[in-house]
Design a protein around this nucleic acid. Structure first.
Lengths: 197, 197
DNA sequence: CATTATAGTGACCATTCGGTCACCTGTCAA
DNA sequence: TTGACAGGTGACCGAATGGTCACTATAATG
């Protein structure tokens, strides 16, 4: 199946909305990037707002699939080395994937202007990742790698510092290396405190 | 000394820029809120961008004073009860003060569009608070309330979860109470792990 | 072959927005 | 008294922007 114009519009809309915000995005530039005339956009969407809503529909579907089902949880690591390796791997992906970067930026800059973005932002930045790591820690407690305690609280003390450094990478890509060093150090620190020896 | 029109413009500009972003703010509404005509604005500032820069100047001065000098550090608490009380007091202030809320929102939604905002955002969300708490923890280590270790790392494992919940309050004010309960619980958890018995 | 739906174009429209200008008015100093 | 000046007004301008419309080309369909 080919990539339809309708989909291409959404992909490019993500780029522009993420970089300039809803208000700052204009349909002439969007059309130009797709090598289309502005009026062609209206063959596929009714209005700028319609494009926006279609993009949010797509994002909501993605998040429902990613955070909604328990099927695609990461496997419980067998050791703290494996945990650290899995962690850093997931972080590296999330920090470098262009589409995910744009999504984070979009959620960040539009979270106060749109109710659906607001909900998605909380899911992405707060609940989603924390819930996933709560499951991971739960599994590690059962394997005896972690002392039994509240896995949700543990996850909440783990993910926000990582998240803060991911935000730093988005904001100041120049400081990428520094951010990764700090992430590694933090994970080490976390392990040193919580690992069952 | 009375509040000059020039200052009133900046105050109202903060409100509008924080709520609608730079691009989303228009000078007609800004003037209307001040019960001025649009052209009156130009008696005090050369352009919209000039207002924006003046606002950033003011914010930079504020942050230089707040995070730059070591004079206005919070006092080292004498006990963990005192620590928790001071903490929650500072958080309550920062979450409820209208000007600080607007500042956070402005930094959040414009961090990718303006280099100065970018720097301020990192200062506000990452380094500023962490540095302050590093000093606090350093003091508490010397008082024997905390085991001696790297105070910067400890601060970095403490402030981001709090910060994430402050962001939640900004984004979803309805969930204010829930956010505060989680903050209290996190502080308790932090104390339980790190306090020297 | 005629028809119809689809995707695309460019000209055009109304509105909005940043910015300018001529003009007004009260204050204060020479 | 007068003249400069700071602060304020409303009318206006050009550019940008979301959206519409008549028109065209192409490919599938009866």
């Amino acid at each position: 199946m080919e990539r339809t114009t309708k989909d291409r519009i959404l992909d490019e809309a993500l780029v522009m909305f993420a970089e300039h915000g809803y208000k700052g995005t204009n349909l002439r530039d969007l059309a130009a990037r797709l090598e289309l005339s502005k009026s062609a956009l209206y063959k596929h969407y009714e209005s700028k707002e319609d494009i926006w809503n279609a993009l949010l529909d797509k994002m909501e579907a993605y998040y429902a699939q990613r955070f909604g089902s328990m099927d695609n949880l990461p496997p419980t690591p067998d050791s703290w080395e494996a945990f650290q390796q899995m962690m850093m791997g997931m972080i590296r992906f999330t920090v470098h994937d262009p589409q995910i970067i744009l999504t984070r930026k979009l959620l960040t800059i539009e979270q106060f202007h749109d109710a659906r973005v607001c909900k998605l932002a909380t899911k992405h930045f707060l609940e989603g990742t924390a819930n996933i790591y709560a499951k991971v820690f739960e599994g590690m407690m059962e394997k005896g790698l972690l002392k039994k305690s509240d896995p949700a609280m543990l996850a909440f003390s783990f993910t926000p510092p990582i998240s803060a450094l991911i935000h730093l990478c988005d904001r100041e890509p120049d400081r990428h290396d520094e951010a990764f060093e700090r992430m590694e150090a933090f994970v080490q620190h976390f392990i040193a405190i919580h690992a069952v020896k």
